[in-house]
């Protein structure tokens, strides 16, 4: 398969995405095939290196008229997939707004600003305000680890750190606990503190957070605001260049 083309490979299978043919290999999900073909579908909990989680619902598309998550639905020949429509983008914007008001997302004082996938996705969806009433939850930091700070205020429960620690690092340092609005990120140690877990700054889980929860200490604003990942190009362009 050639990146950046919408033409099906010779004799290959394809589905249509917003009216254009997208080729896929057997077993690929809709979002995997779309991104490989240069078509962006907004997403937060999807990551090309990990099994799908299907929780953020940003990648919701309409397949033959019915809504489903593009990260969990396997591509099938002849599917008619709608993604970049005003209706779906309005719903995606509402989901992102809910994520913003459920946590404490103060971009001006966040080290991740400009590199944050939640922020970049909100920019791309044209989110001008959080719209809903803010929850302003109280979520204390965990600064116990010598190399890494945890700021739970920004957690969007994407579970990427959970998956990375379990599947790549083989440590299961992180977990999601509670249900519904009580769901939150926890650290697997007797004290609940990161310093008392076997977490290391070299872990995959240390670098996979799409927002500003898992932050390396003593780095801060080494790259100035204005010269960061999504300052150069919007997330919808970066993601289809094979950069996540």
């Amino acid at each position: 398969m050639t990146t950046g083309t919408f033409q099906p490979a010779e004799g290959g299978q394809a589905f249509t995405l917003d009216g254009r043919a997208v080729p896929f290999a057997a077993g690929q999900t809709i979002i995997q095939a779309a991104l490989a073909a240069g078509a962006y579908i907004p997403h937060l909990c999807h990551h090309p290196e990990f099994k799908p989680h299907g929780s953020c619902k940003l990648c919701t598309v309409k397949v033959n008229g019915r809504q489903t998550a593009a990260c969990t639905m396997q591509a099938q020949a002849g599917m008619d997939v709608e993604s970049d429509t005003p209706e779906l983008n309005d719903e995606r914007r509402a989901l992102v707004q809910m994520l913003f008001v459920e946590g404490n997302h103060f971009c001006p004082s966040c080290e991740k600003s400009g590199d944050c996938r939640l922020q970049a996705t909100a920019y791309d969806l044209g989110m001008m305000s959080p719209h809903y009433d803010h929850f302003y939850p109280s979520r204390p930091l965990d600064a116990s680890h010598p190399d890494v700070l945890l700021d739970f205020n920004r957690c969007i429960l994407c579970s990427l750190c959970v998956r990375a620690s379990r599947e790549v690092d083989g440590k299961s340092v992180f977990g999601l606990s509670g249900r519904g609005i009580g769901a939150h990120l926890i650290v697997n140690s007797r004290s609940g503190r990161l310093a008392d877990s076997d977490f290391s700054a070299a872990d995959k889980a240390a670098s996979v957070c799409p927002v500003g929860v898992i932050l390396p200490k003593r780095r801060g604003f080494a790259v100035p605001i204005g010269e960061r990942t999504y300052d150069a190009a919007p997330i919808s362009e970066r993601d289809v260049r094979g950069v996540s």
Binding site: N104, H105, F106, S109, P130, H134, Y136, P137, R139
Partner: peptide, 12 residues
């Protein structure tokens, strides 16, 4: 004005 900003960081 949009989300409370810096002053709202006293909210907890």
């Amino acid at each position: 004005a949009v989300n409370g900003g810096l002053p709202a960081q006293r909210n907890h």
